[in-house]
Amino acid sequence: MTEPILSIRNLVVEIKTRHAILKAVDCVSYDIAPGEILGVVGESGAGKSMAGNAVIGLLSKPFSVADGEIWLKGRRIDNLSREKMRRLRGKEIGVVFQDPLTSLNPLIRIGDQLVETIMEHLKLSKKEAERRAISALEEVGIPAAAKRVNSYPHEFSGGMRQRVVIALALCAEPSLIIADEPTTALDVSVQAQIIALLKRLCRERGTAVMLITHDMGVVAETANRVAVMYAGRLAEIGPVRDVLTNPKHPYTDGLMGSTPAAAIGLEKLRQIPGSMPRLARLPKGCAFSPRCNRATDKCVQDPPPDLTAGEGYAACWYSLKTECTG
């Protein structure tokens, strides 16, 4: 097995509130191999973005990495100084945020935003950086790139802006892209284009991708593997085909049943009863146990067995596979 680009080990992200210390991410581990796209799915507040922010070192005030390790290409990065971490961002880890309308500085030409990023990370002259900015725009499919570098963000449509954002994330050729809900704010027709673009660029360059989303359709379309998060913990992780067609964790199963595209053929869109517990009131055992229809006393009392990063695992005492065969 090749060395993973990103490797997260037992990551814990804490929120310090006045009353207590809560765990927004609790003991999460996963790897991303070169060229691999890992989909990270879960409801809002499940901690999926938090893990991404921890990797790029941009957790802000009440949040902090409390435990665990983050390795990038064999180098531990969670304990780097702020300055070293800053140099890593953009250079080794590119980031694409959710809303392209607000990700670009409205008062600065996109060419200048590209050039400043390129010159920050690569030793190039202004001229060379400008040339590179144009080719970066061409690569993401902006027509008449040489002219458009002088445009301001508001002169682009939403989809085009997300292309610019992707160009910005990729312009220093990072080995890892963290895409945090990259298509959520876009029209459905544009979503597919952006996903295809991201997929193509990463395949061409062998860039690893952490694709954070709540859209099961996007994951099915794009990811090689998928990690399902629930209340800060990993519920299930495995190859995308296995997890989507044959989920082992009852939560994943419920999630699939409540996804329209996946639920075609079912008589009715199923829903998972209740809602995700607040971090301050996590149940003692399995966090999903209050909503799980097969929970037993054991589930209520003891947290499920730890996930070890491997091919496919579900953090459940009675994972569905074993149940189904029985």
């Binding site: 941009l58 961002r89 945020f97 400043e116 990023t117 920050e120 990370h121």
Partner: peptide, 17 residues
């Protein structure tokens, strides 16, 4: 607090920039 400042940080720009 805006996204573009967060994105500027995520691109690895210096604090001063």
């Amino acid at each position: 607090r805006t996204d573009y400042v967060r994105f500027a940080r995520a691109r690895g720009l210096r604090e001063s920039a």
